[in-house]
Amino acid sequence: NPSKRARTMVTESAMRDAFAKYAEYLNALNEKRERVVKASRDVTMNSKKVIFQVHRMSKYNKEEIIEQAEKDLTAVTDQYMSRLVKELQGTDFWKLRRAYSPGVQEYVEAATFCNFCKTGTLLKLDEINATLLPLSDPSLEPLKINILDYLLGLADLTGELMRLAIGRISDGELDFAENICRFVRDIYRELTLVVPHMDDSSDMKQKMDTMLQSVMKIENACFSVHVRGSEYIPLLGSNDPSSFLVGVPDIEL
């Protein structure tokens, strides 16, 4: 039956034509995604370096360290975030979110970490987005970090703050540690109210548990310094419990 055979061949070639289009579409999408993932990975790596830089802080070199960290962060913004912004421009930001979300989160973590160390306050989402604005072609819709990635980044920030707090207590900077404690508690409390409304809160819920652990680690550290300090007040005759640690002459070390 030649006509039947012909018809099947037509069908088959129609299918192939259709699939050629799908292939084209998928290739373009995958390549873009690949580029975005790479850009995101670079953002992650370099943001982590910024965070590590901040952790190098000691009581004596704080200003320099933070200054350097901020410079590094600016470099991340200019070199790597800008690449991400360029890759994404004009695209549906939600479609490729999973490809760039890890990088953006780590960037949020680094930016808010630097900012807290410098100013003691939380860098807002709008502020971050404002710094990103100049990176994009003014004719296109600019990349805005979305709330979800911002909040996920904040959740990780508390872990770094915990590490920082332990370090600050070691350095005798009790006030700094107490500031961190307050700050982290505030963030934790605010997040408890926001998290249930998040789009996909499953991994965020796990981060909340980790965050509470971090809060408590800081609280326990503060407690420990406090009871220790209180014990020495009679011995030292001082009235300011925080002075004792700072008061130990470090030059001796």
């Binding site: 307050r182 508690r185 409390r189 408890t192 109210l193 249930p196 609280e219």
Partner: peptide, 17 residues
Amino acid sequence: IESTTRLTYASLLLVHQ
């Protein structure tokens, strides 16, 4: 209920501060 509880809890947790 869940949402009311959450709000109440969040404000009560200020006792830790």
